[in-house]
Design a protein around this nucleic acid. Structure first.
Lengths: 220, 220
DNA sequence: ACGAGCCTCCCCCGCACGGGGGAGCCGGAC
DNA sequence: GTCCGGCTCCCCCGTGCGGGGGAGGCTCGT
């Protein structure tokens, strides 16, 4: 069976574009549209889409609130992909923190949009690293280093958080990081939580993956 | 205060070599020697070293048994570095499974030996990736790919375990891996445990790090 | 026919982890 | 002066994770 998608965006043009791109795929079906986050809940209940493509900035209820609302009130909620215009949109991170499964740039190439929808439908998170890859591909940056580093900076990690992430990427436990930094484990937990939230990672493993994928830490 | 080390090796020559290399460092002190694993326990109790450099193959009690014995009977046990002659020594993995914190090739360069001791003393595990780096440096293999892949093969992951590791390295949880492979979570747990044991990793994060460091999975 | 290795699933159990709160301290910005 | 962000630490709490066992079925080689 095909992947069913619900589009939520206040601009009809964008919805049309998404619909055109996605319906060109035989395994993806757009089952509905909404012009504002406030209309999402009943639509999700009725249509039970696999994926919701959710705009961040909308007049009545924005994508962050809508994401929270869906995840809070719907059982077996759909995967949520946040759609944004600006790559440095801090609201996106808010949305990821709220439980969104990935995000998507409106200017991304059709193939990338399709890919993103398929990925989250499969249950994978379109995290930080994925966005890095998209950006890198977009700007034709072979190494991806510049884009990757820019993306990591976009996550706005504080110095301390970056330090903690580096130690996480060396395999240290919270207790070991605490010993190394000469602080309490509770402090480390705070930093780790901040890192996870900012990177849109679910656990430390995903954060370390993001660190490798973005070039924040280098193998070898 | 300096890092205190106990040397355990049946060959006096090796002990002398290790002593010379380590004592050349102002922050490392060799506090004792033993010629067999059977003599380790009382020595550890008396000397309370930070690190034990333990040979694998010894006449009476081998390094695996000795490692197990120390970890089982001594409270606040020292870090244990397993020393071996052959890079494809399967006993080394037995020892890591028994709880050793790292391993070391006898033919490693002095600087590497010193580095290894310092690392484990700091509480870091000298895992798989570290050995890969040593091997790569040793053979002048810039990319380290050949050596890394050989090392990963040495871990003898089964097909299923390799598959699970790949999914771990994509950030999936046990439940998600189970769903993907259409098996029970208990099964996944078994595979994950096997992977951790074979790689000498403490948790999934360290396993994923090993996967990246060894080139088993590639960033980007 | 038998063992070895792999894959599968089961139990119990302890703990590190991560979420969700809150709070105090400090320094720099306004 | 006030506000804000970063760093620090605290509580409670659920659960995913990993260890340590065991066990049955399967294929393969001898």
């Amino acid at each position: 069976m095909p992947v069913t998608v619900l589009l939520v965006d206040d601009e009809p043009l964008v919805r049309a574009g998404l619909r055109a791109v996605l319906e060109a795929q035989s395994d993806i079906e757009v089952v509905g549209e909404a012009a504002d986050g406030a209309a999402v809940i009943p639509l999700v209940r009725r249509l039970r889409p696999d994926v919701v493509a959710m705009d961040v900035r909308m007049p009545l209820m924005d994508g962050i609130e809508a994401t929270r609302a869906v995840l809070r009130t719907v059982e077996r909620p759909p995967k949520i992909v946040v759609v944004t215009t600006f790559e440095n949109d801090e609201y996106v991170y808010e949305a990821l923190r709220a439980g969104a499964d990935g995000f998507l740039l409106k200017r991304a190439r059709p193939a990338e949009i399709v890919h993103a929808v398929r990925l989250v439908a499969e249950g994978e998170s379109l995290l930080f690293p994925a966005s890095v890859r998209q950006l890198a591909a977009q700007y034709g940056d072979e190494g991806g280093n510049r884009a990757a580093r820019a993306a990591m900076e976009r996550a706005q990690l504080t110095e301390r958080e970056a330090e903690v992430l580096r130690l996480m990427a060396r395999g240290l436990s919270n207790a070991e990081i605490a010993a190394r930094l000469v602080v309490g484990t509770e402090t480390v937990k705070s930093h780790v939580s901040a890192v996870l939230a900012k990177l849109g990672a679910r656990d430390r493993t995903q954060a370390v993956i993001a660190a490798y994928e973005s070039g924040f830490v280098a193998p070898g």
